[in-house]
Design a binder for these strands. Structure first.
Lengths: 328, 328
DNA sequence: TTGAAAGCGCTAACAA
DNA sequence: TTGTTAGCGCTTTCAA
């Protein structure tokens, strides 16, 4: 910028004005500056600008796994809102590891992102308190924050699961299995809770062998599904706790002769063709809502942190409407 | 940092040393500084650090659409490599718009990212020349750079499509349709080329009505598919140019009585259950390779820009092995 | 081992 | 309309 100034024979501030489109520069001077900029190939260094202005015009998004198709639309929605506010998006995966989450979040704070959207892996976010106090707006998505008071945007997992299981019950099922994610994950717990509530609503007693929580790796889910489909009292329907589980469950059920009903949490691409009944949550709206909340805070709105729970939708496509198999 | 220094009763530089784990500080002094850091809740401001050091420890990734499941694994792979090198990832979607691509890329350059990975939307990247000269390493992925000499990592679209179409021909098809993305997209062109090559290899003449290029919105793809399935000489097989096309093609074919063979470029989740034969490219390897190349350059390796083309794999699952329907 | 001073590239505040 | 000066928070250089 200094070079541009001397080349154009003007002061530093004049160049700054031109670069930032500020008023108070004669067209003639502006032209000279522009020429100098062109010929020197000058581009403003935003790092310096950031240092001076205090705002980085960037926000951080920490999610579980950038490769998980569920988070794609969420990610994109956040990006669009950020873009509309002139901000860039820095993002990373926690890989469901609380330590990695914290490491990433603190790295983003050190970069002085203006705001943070976090899909929490851990349950204790007190480490964020000083950062929030220092002005980094933070919104949690998909799962609540741990031990701190902050904005949260999520889907109604409890209600969704309850609705899905009730649907299976309405179609005659009495022995229904639940396969979900690890119990340290909030949504997993909420969904089992919804499952149990629906069973209880119908006066059904849940057998422990019908419930399986754990990592969503295909092998684990497969083993869990097969276990509850064997034995003297096999389940006639399965409720899959998330998209990863559903995918594997569909594979397992496809190999079997006896028809087993299935309802999955989260919609999946091509689920319509496979006739998979799902409880769909709107990941894009989740992301958009969170990002909008974040920018509202950045614009100075300072109301109490709130929890927003979005409704889920039951989409019947066949697999959830299969009656209990007669044999056995 | 200044505050920490005065609180600990030491000089600025000593604090800097402690924060960065540099040697030359007595354990006692270090402890005092640490205490001051704790009690003040100090966190280094990386913006200032960046300004001074010249490196931002961040790279930019510009892709087409963060929500497209094809790019998820690519994105994640790039992130992992970046993480291994201590860098953060800033990313954004070009939405297949060359202007938006440029805007985004230049914004990233203004932030002085150390390097850039770009899935190009446009065909002219000369605007990047000054940036590259200024030291921002750049690698293009999935499609080649336009008008400039740069590293490129992509899949062998031509070979993949040729292989897929040859597979259909080997199963007896003679009238094969091709539905692909817009002709301004490099991979789309390469894949038609592969299609034509395979047809020519087999001595088959392509009817113009069998080839359809355009946006991959479901309505457009549906119309194209239906058009080539009607008429006096309908196709007996379709080669789908990418994952978006495949998804819609599968839906269209599912509604029809007459069996039509299908091979799609790109693998899709659940394609195995639907029995969709695909030409799979490895998006994660694409991303990893590109990122590794990028960091190699950042480490000072300065060999000639090269083009890396990864092989694709044909995965037969049924839809591509359907013989031509006898009727008509 | 420690620290003072200079400066990274920019913008805010104030002068001219 | 234009320019000068100070300083954002850190690291580098060099001296103590």
């Amino acid at each position: 910028m200094k070079d541009v100034a001397s080349r154009a024979g003007v002061g530093l501030k004049t160049v700054s004005r031109v670069v930032n489109g500020e008023p108070g520069v004669t067209p003639d001077t502006e032209r000279r500056v522009q020429e100098a900029i062109e010929s020197l190939g000058f581009r403003r260094n935003d790092s310096a600008r950031v240092l001076r202005k205090g705002r980085t015009a960037s926000i951080g998004l920490v999610l579980e796994d950038l490769a998980d198709p569920f988070y794609g639309p969420l990610n994109r929605a956040v990006e669009e809102v950020a873009r509309a506010h002139g901000a860039l998006l820095i993002n990373g995966s926690s890989a469901e590891d609380p330590e990695r989450e914290q490491e990433l979040v603190l790295a983003l704070c050190a970069r002085r992102v203006d705001g943070l959207i976090v899909i929490p892996a851990g349950h204790d976010h007190r480490y964020l308190e000083p950062e929030i106090k220092a002005g980094i707006a933070t919104v949690f998505v998909d799962r609540p924050a741990g031990q701190i008071d902050a904005d949260v945007v999520l889907s109604d997992s409890f209600g969704g699961a309850r609705k899905g299981v009730a649907h299976l019950i309405a179609h005659g099922h009495r022995r229904i299995g639940f396969i979900g994610d690890q119990p340290r994950i909030h949504t997993a717990v909420e969904r089992v809770r919804g499952y149990r509530a629906a069973m209880e609503d119908a006066g059904l007693v849940v057998d422990d062998s019908w419930v399986s929580l754990g990592i969503t790796a295909p092998e684990r889910v497969r083993a869990a599904a097969e276990a509850m489909l064997e034995g003297p009292e096999p389940v006639t329907a399965i409720f899959a706790g998330n998209n990863r589980v559903t995918v594997t469950a569909v594979r397992v059920l496809a190999e079997r002769e006896r028809p087993v009903a299935l309802v999955g949490f989260d919609d999946i691409e091509l689920a319509d063709l496979l006739g998979i009944t799902v409880i769909a949550q709107d990941a894009a709206t989740l992301g958009r809502t969170a990002a909008e909340r974040l920018f509202r805070r950045l614009d100075g709105v300072d109301d109490e942190p709130a929890l927003v729970a979005l409704e889920t939708v039951l989409i019947p496509r066949g697999s959830g409407e299969v009656p209990p198999s007669a044999d056995r």
